[in-house]
């Protein structure tokens, strides 16, 4: 399993990101949304199975069952594709998802802080990213103007 950043530290990933065929009896899987939905009757009792969504997939499609999942991952097909930030916002704020929210795909150091603010708490970094150095990307700013998932009150509420 690859190393990931989770809760501001480097740890080994506890889930296998599955993109393609897999024996569903394997432990600790991160399955495509469509695969999960297709096998939901068998999988819904499992505590070690989460889902991942492509940037263009609707997070609303997971609304019905997402609260029971331990983990949701959102893919960044390219670091410049910002759709998953909005999916994360909706997942946390509207659906009240409290499990682990992982960023996967083209995840790079200079976007980590934005991801944290949108509700991500673990990161499987893109190939070639230095994890040690990436930790520095988590905290560049002391204050923020607008509210976000990690701190819903905008600055003006306390100014």
């Amino acid at each position: 399993m690859p190393a990931i950043i989770k809760n501001q530290a480097i740890v080994e990933s506890d889930y296998q990101w599955v993109d393609g065929e897999i024996d569903l009896s394997t432990n600790n899987l991160l399955l495509p949304l469509t695969t999960y939905i297709a096998h939901q009757d068998k999988l819904s009792a499992r505590k070690d199975v989460g889902i991942w969504l492509e940037a263009g997939e609707n997070i609303e499609d997971a609304e019905a069952f997402v609260s029971k999942l331990p983990i949701v991952a959102l893919n960044f097909p390219a670091f410049g594709d910002g759709r998953a930030y909005s999916s994360a916002n909706i997942l946390r704020r509207k659906f009240g998802f409290e499990g682990e929210l992982r960023a996967i795909g083209d995840v790079r150091r200079d976007q980590l802080e934005q991801m944290v603010r949108c509700g991500f708490d673990s990161f499987q970094m893109a190939d070639g990213q230095n994890l040690e150095k990436s930790l520095a990307g988590l905290n560049s700013f002391t204050y923020n103007y607008q509210g976000s998932i990690d701190r819903p009150e905008p600055l003006f509420q306390n100014r």
Partner: peptide, 13 residues
């Protein structure tokens, strides 16, 4: 201006 500055969700439109 303040709301949009470093908005974490809308930096990659």
């Amino acid at each position: 201006r303040q709301w949009s500055t470093f908005h974490p969700e809308f930096n990659w439109l």
